[in-house]
Structures are given as structure tokens and as C-alpha cells.
Amino acid sequence: MSLAAEAFVSQIAAAEPWPENATLYQPLTEDQILLSDCASSLAVQAYLRMCGLPVQVVCRANAEYMSPSGKIPFIHVGNQVVSELGPIVQFTRAKGHSLSDGLDDVQRAEMKAYMELVNNMLLTAELYIQWCDDATAAEVCMLISRPRYSSPYSWPLSNVLAYQKQWEVRRKMNAIGWGGKTLEQVYEDVSQCCQALSQRLGTQPYFFNKQPTELDALVFGHLFTILTTRLTSTELAERVKSCSNLLSFCKRIEQTYFEDKSS
């Protein structure tokens, strides 16, 4: 899309108010969705709730193939489809809904840097644990990831798609230098990331003063999912639990924005 076309689209988006029937698509919650996709989806839901924008969550077995970028989750608003948190944040900003308008330049730079830290470390670690063959990770892959990912499809397509996905993720891990890592090194990276987030949060209710930003939504999505997802080992959740302020942070956001969901 050219710059002129992009500007035109954003103008149209800005002109139309947020509709009541906005929809967020994700894989099937009970049988199919994996840790990383669940985290990304929860981050988008948290962000939209923080903005006060209503959205209906719809689960589809083929959500990944419905998405324009092949990434999950994506939202369908009016006649537009937008996938992933970053573009969704830009899209809502065009409509006049933003959580980071109150930040100065340095704070905005820090917010974006920490968002990249979460994507670079937590998201990558989730993908590694789901798909990469290390002694323990293989267990997760065989018992959880492959069966869940391919659950909507019949044999032999189920096997083909699961292997294809695993191959894709492994190639990406090699490209970013994670191919040679052991599971312990991955857990160490998660600890390092959580400690960095914990230091940044300190005693504040949110990462930047008293109002949540997209960083808060992203961190909540990943940490809450890690804490509440059952894997073959609890090691990943234990690393998060070692930072008490992050636990309080997750509880606070859950109570504030997901009251109706908490059971």
C-alpha cells in the first residue's frame, strides 16, 4: 500500500466510530489455542478493554488462515481487518483511542523498547517451549502443542500441518540464534526478562504512573497466560512467580478489566 493510500485508509478509519459489533478472532479456546497465541489474544483483549472499546471474541478453528497476515489474533471492525497488537494499537489511535498520549518522548521510547523486550524474549521463549525439540520441550511438543494445534483436522492433514508449523518455528529459532539454546538457557532468558519488567514496574500500579498503556496490556497477556496455562512442567510459571510485584500487577489488571471473567 502506498503512503497516500495508507493515509486515506487511516482517514476513513478515523472518520468512523468504533462499532458495537467489532469482533476478535482467535483459535478454539478449549481444544486448539496454544500458549503463545493465547497470550497474544489476551493482550489485545486487555488493550481494547483498557481503551473501553467493546469487542466480541469469536473462536474459529481456521482463525490462522482467516488472518490477513497469518498471525493471531485479528479484529474485524466495520469493513477492516487488522491483526496483531502493534497494528491494532495504530488502528485504534487513528480512531482517537490511545493509552499512551500522556507519555513524554522518553517514556514513549521506553514503552516501545519494553514491548520489544517482551516480544523478543517472552514470546520467543513460549514458541521455543511449544515447538523446539529439547529433552523436556519435546514432551510439551508431543503431548500438548502438536495434538492441540492439529486437533480440528483429520489425519493425515493434522500431522502435515503440525510438522509444518514446527519446522517453521525451528527455522525461525535458528535464524535468531535460539536454535542452539538449551531449555535451561531459555528459562534463564525468561527470568532475566521478568526481572527487567519487575525493576521497571517497581511499586507503581502500572508501568507508567497510574494509567495503563499498551505495554501493560502486552505484559499482562503474556504473564497471565504463563501463570494460568498447564504445561508438563511448572518451571516457566515459577520463573514469573519469583517477581511478586508482577503477580500483583496481573491480579490488579484481572480484577479491574476482567471482573466478569474471573471465577
Binding site: E110, K112, A113, Y114, E116, L117, N119, N120, M121, Q192, C193, Q195, A196, L197, Q199, R200, G202
Partner: peptide, 18 residues
């Protein structure tokens, strides 16, 4: 400081990604 170390890690991630 611990906070500066955290910022350092975050900005290195920003460099790697962008």
C-alpha cells in the same frame, strides 16, 4: 543500577527487532 540494566536490555531488544 537495576533499573538501568533493565532499560539496557529493553533497548537492545528494540535494536534487534527494528
Amino acid at each position: 543500577s537495576a533499573k538501568e540494566g533493565a532499560d539496557s536490555l529493553a533497548f537492545i531488544s528494540l535494536l534487534e527487532e527494528k
